[in-house]
Computed example of a mutant assay.
Amino acid sequence: MMKTTITIQNLKCGGCVNTITAKLLEIDNIVEVQVDKDSSTVAFRYKDPEDAFKVKEKLKKLGYPAVDNKNSLLIKASSYISCASGKMQEGSF
């Protein structure tokens, strides 16, 4: 297994962290997901480079694109939805 860290955009709170962690762990061959809200990073272990690409794509769909991706208004809106979903999971609404 290899390990990598991606710096992302739009990471705001614990709700975001919950959503990102849960959604990335649904991807095959992705383990040990660690989201650091203070540094806006997502670290994880993966089996093949293709798995890491899937994580990057999933993060973008959730509204948390890597810093080397464009952060459009639509992507920002997606992050608010993911954030709210994560807050509901932790019961902080």
Score class of each variant (00 low, 15 high):
N29Y: 11
K3C: 07
D36T: 09
K61P: 01
N29K: 12
E57C: 03
R45T: 10
Y64M: 07
G86P: 13
T21W: 01
S78D: 11
V31C: 10
S92P: 01
S79E: 04
Y64V: 04
I30T: 01
V33M: 07
F44M: 07
L59M: 02
K3H: 11
L62W: 00
N69H: 12
K76V: 12
L73Q: 11
M2Q: 14
A66L: 02
G91K: 03
K12P: 01
K23C: 09
D28R: 07
K70P: 01
L73H: 07
D38P: 00
Q34R: 10
K61R: 05
L73V: 09
F44G: 00
I30W: 05
V42T: 01
Q9W: 03
S79V: 03
G91L: 06
L59Y: 04
V17K: 13
L59Q: 03
V31Q: 15
K58E: 15
N71Y: 00
A43P: 07
I75G: 01
V33F: 05
E50A: 13
V17D: 06
A66G: 12
N10T: 06
D48Q: 08
N18M: 15
S85P: 02
D38N: 15
Y64R: 05
S85G: 10
P49G: 05
Y64K: 05
G91W: 02
S78Q: 13
Y64H: 04
I75Y: 03
T5V: 07
N69E: 15
I6Q: 04
T21N: 08
P49N: 13
K87W: 13
P49C: 06
S39A: 02
K56L: 09
C13Q: 08
C13P: 06
K70Y: 01
